[in-house]
Structure formats: structure tokens, C-alpha cells
Design a protein around this nucleic acid. Structure first.
Lengths: 190, 190
DNA sequence: ACCTGAACACCGTTCAAGT
DNA sequence: ACCTGAACACCGTTCAAGT
């Protein structure tokens, strides 16, 4: 005899995202998620195979949101590609500040977490496009990887509190964007 | 009546490092460490205040080792700074492959982990020095941060399996080193 | 068909009792 | 002064029993 559903996968993932940001990865427990969606912990296993799978779903949702933010920042095709690259870098940094815990989860996951290739592809599409404009099509992928590595690395180090030698971190960020744009553009000129 | 020590802090940290690499952060349990050093879990609390503190000691030991590797790769002062920068980047990548779990732990720590400022300073000294040679003293710190962000970002993404769009990752790495060296050197010319 | 309480194995941590 | 067993609170996960 059927019972009406008392929760849903989407609600569970959303609860996971909120708990992750509020209480860290350790605070994302099955019991806390269950309480938040109004159910007992064992019931979660009807929708999710285990905690790691739930963490992966949370990471994937965040990766897609990041991809959308960067896409939006990339803006119109007509604009100066350097300006678009700059805006994309700022969007990554703003996103990391909005969801610091999830950002770390995506870019330095535990060994078990495998990000969905489709989500990865979507999240990098606009970076590859702008990089191609700057560096030329045959260097688009290498240039996109160089830029993405710098942006994620900078933001990760900032979140980790690794910039402790003084100096102005905002200025270092803007310095980096301009140098990266130059570097990538230079490669197109060869 | 005193009892002879059956273990030491150094031995505990070393056991933690081995377990971390072998079984991941989740495998670094107080019980596993205790077994490995031949003691019961409660005894560990004589030398370490709790598990997080032990994890921090493990991270710090790894950060110092990374700093030493990069220093060694920086080599002689007389050599071409671009070549030195290249070797330093390769040293970071080699280190990450040797200790992937610990590398991730350092660059995307959980919220609680604070790296020791002294260890951070030591590990970045030679990068700042070489960057200063390339970019000029007044841009040394910004340039070092740009380079370090790229190197750590690239290696972290590689470890996370984030480069899935095909293409040659080794080539992307070498492309990145050359572009970063150019970018940083260009800033010295202004 | 979904939900629950009970149960199991495991973990971090504390503490009184041993030597 | 260090080490231990026992205990507590907590977690992930399974499963038989309820509706």
C-alpha cells in the first residue's frame, strides 16, 4: 500500500548544500539532512545510495551554478575579449566568496569524488570560447587551461588563507588578470 | 612512577602522513595511527590535543617538504630565471604526484585548518626571489602570487581530474609555464 | 512504495584506575 | 608520567516490520 512521498531528491540535495555551507563538510551528515527535510536518516537511502553519492550531487549542483555564473559574466560576444576574461575571473572569485565550502569541495575533492564530465564541459565552454578569441583557435584549450588554473588557484589560495606575506590581495588579483590576458593573447601572435 | 615512552610526536605525525597517503583523509583515524605506533588511541591525546591538531601537523610537515623541494629546484642564483621558474613549476607538479592527498589537504583545507605562517613564508621565499628577478622588485610579490596561483591551480585541477576535454595535459602545462614566465617578465618592463 | 525503530560497526574523546 | 579499558555521544548503514 503506497505512502505519499514526504521528501524528494531535489529537496535532499538542497538541504545538503545549505548544511555544507553552514557547518562544513563534517556538518553534512545524513542525520542533519534527514532532520532538515523532515524524515529519518534511513529514509534518505531510498533516493541516494550513500553519503558520498549525496556529496557528489551537492558538488555537481554547485559546479553547474558556477558555470552559469561564469557564462553570465562572459556577456555579449561583441565585447572586448580582455574585458570579458576579466569579468569571468571576477565572477569566479565572487562565487567562491558566496559558497566557499562548496568551492573547495569542487576544486580539491576527496579521492572518491568524480565530477560529472558533462557539468565540467558546460562550466568551461565560455572560458574556452573567450580564450580562443584571444589566443587563436589552435591554442584555445591550452589558453583556457592556463587561465582557469590561475583563477581557481588564486581563489583557492585566498580561501585557504595562504596569502600572508602582506601586500594587497585585491591588487594581486587584478595584476594577475591583466598578466594572464597578456600572456594568453601573446601566444596568439606567434 | 614514570613509565618509559612508548612513542613520540614525530612518530605519530609520520604515521599520520603514511596513513593519509594510503587511505585518504578518512583513513587517518586516531585508532589507525595508534595501532601503527603501537599504542591505544587514548594515549595519543598525551601528545596531540585532538584529531584536527594532528591533521594540521601532518599538513604543516608536508608544506615544509614542498617548500624544500621547490627550493632545491630553484637551484643556483646564476641560472636563467626563466629556467629556474620552469624547474620550480615542475617540482610542484612532481611533488603533487608523489603526495596527492597531502597536496590537496594543503591547498584546499577544511575550514578549521590554519597553516603555519612561518611554514608558508619559507615555502614561498624562493618563488618570490625568482619572481623579483623576472618582474622587478616592486612587482615581486604580485608576480609570485600569480605564478604560484597558476602552478597550484593547474596541479590541483589535474589531481581532481578536471581536465577532461581531451588535448595533451603535459603540453598544456608546458604552455602554461612559458606564458606565465612571459607574463611576469612583461610586467618588469613597464 | 515509502517510512521507521532497532541494531551493528566504527569513530573521537574523556576519565578513573593501573604501573 | 604515561598507558589502558571502559564508557559516552555520535555517525553511516542495514533490515525487518509497519502503513
Amino acid at each position: 500500500m503506497p505512502t505519499p512521498d514526504r521528501t524528494s531528491l531535489a529537496e535532499i540535495v538542497e538541504a545538503g548544500r545549505e548544511l555544507l555551507e553552514r557547518d562544513g563538510l563534517d556538518g553534512l551528515t545524513m542525520q542533519a539532512v534527514a532532520t532538515r527535510v523532515g524524515v529519518r536518516a534511513p529514509s534518505l537511502y531510498k533516493r541516494v545510495s550513500n553519503r558520498d553519492a549525496l556529496v557528489a550531487l551537492v558538488a555537481d549542483a554547485t559546479l553547474r551554478e558556477l558555470g552559469d555564473s561564469v557564462d553570465a559574466a562572459a556577456g555579449e560576444l561583441e565585447r572586448d575579449p580582455r574585458e570579458r576574461l576579466r569579468e569571468m575571473a571576477r565572477a569566479v572569485r565572487a562565487f567562491a566568496r558566496r559558497r566557499p565550502v562548496a568551492f573547495r569541495l569542487i576544486f580539491a575533492p576527496g579521492a572518491e569524488l568524480r565530477l560529472d564530465p558533462d557539468s565540467l564541459a558546460r562550466s568551461s565552454a565560455s572560458v574556452v570560447a573567450v580564450s580562443g578569441e584571444l589566443a587563436g583557435e589552435e591554442h584555445a584549450l591550452d589558453a583556457a587551461r592556463t587561465f582557469t588554473a590561475w583563477a581557481n588557484g588564486f581563489v583557492s589560495m585566498e580561501l585557504a588563507g595562504a596569502f600572508r606575506l602582506g601586500g594587497d590581495v585585491d591588487r594581486a588579483f587584478e595584476f594577475g588578470v591583466e598578466r594572464l590576458a597578456d600572456a594568453v593573447a601573446a601566444s596568439g601572435a606567434r
